[in-house]
């Protein structure tokens, strides 16, 4: 076990070092959430005045910011399998497999790397939100909860993405699947608008949508009247999903090894 942890740490270190060498990457990954936060947030700022309400605040940007942290984390996760595919394409992974490296660390490190990036991006998004006047009702605890939600949201879908990458092993297929999963789950949630404003069937669907679990947990701690039970429950759901998808990714890794 300690070997697995140590090897995971080596592998995460390798990936983060490589990423730090091109920090422009993190900046590029932040452009999209900034567009949502700055442009979309302005464009629809009056949406909070809709009859029926349900926003919990009159400041749309306050409503939106925690959800953008989750959205960014979610989309980042759906793409994280691409790194695995490029490791398969070149013989990087086989080279490691001929060493005593812990097998599980090769999979888990990809998930940890992806989640760490999501947390860093989430913190940057929150800092920008702070500058835009967003106030986190529960303070520092709220920040911790939001970043935890971002990490769990990311690892849940990074596990899935790694698993799919190991099954399809082709970048084009991976892109198609990421889009196929990403957009519907994004729109079937209360990311952009209050749950009370969306059609009834969508409200039902959103209950089972992990993206919505993350959005609820993150938003609860920003708005007044935080329901801690709901926060805990939804974080627990995300944690359970993370464990399940990590197990799925490990299983697909074994399947991949059988095809070498």
């Amino acid at each position: 076990m300690t070997i697995a942890v140590r090897h995971t740490w080596f592998m995460v270190g390798r990936q983060l070092r490589n990423l730090m060498r091109e920090p422009i990457w993190i900046a590029l990954l932040l452009v999209q959430p900034m567009v949502w936060l700055l442009l979309y947030g302005q464009l629809f700022k009056r949406v909070t005045h809709l009859p029926g309400g349900g926003f919990g605040t009159t400041s749309y940007i306050t409503f939106l910011a925690p959800a953008i942290v989750i959205m960014n984390s979610f989309f980042g996760a759906t793409w994280s399998g691409m790194a695995m595919i490029s490791g398969l394409d070149r013989d990087v992974l086989p080279r490691f497999l001929a060493t005593p490296v812990s097998r599980i660390s090769l999979v888990v490190s990809q998930i940890v790397r992806s989640a760490l990036i999501a947390v860093i991006q989430g913190a940057i998004i929150l800092l920008v939100s702070l500058a835009l006047g967003v106030r986190v009702h529960t303070g520092v605890v709220g920040w911790v909860v939001m970043l935890t939600a971002a990490a769990l949201m990311n690892s849940a879908f990074a596990g899935l993405s790694q698993g799919i990458a190991l099954l399809v092993r082709k970048e084009a297929t991976m892109i198609a699947i990421a889009n196929f999963i990403g957009l519907p789950l994004f729109f079937l949630s209360s990311t952009l608008i209050s749950i009370r404003q969306i059609p009834h069937w969508m409200q039902i669907a959103a209950k089972f949508n992990p993206v919505n679990w993350g959005v609820i947990a993150a938003r609860e701690v920003v708005l007044p009247g935080t329901d801690w039970n709901s926060v805990g429950f939804h974080l627990a759901l995300l944690f359970a999903l993370s464990v399940a998808t990590a197990a799925f990714a490990t299983w697909t890794f074994r399947a991949y090894q059988r095809t070498i």
Partner: peptide, 15 residues
């Protein structure tokens, strides 16, 4: 006990 040099390069190109 072994070293393995695979057919296509196994180096991490970004490191």
């Amino acid at each position: 006990a072994i070293g393995y040099v695979p057919q296509s390069s196994g180096v991490d190109r970004d490191a």
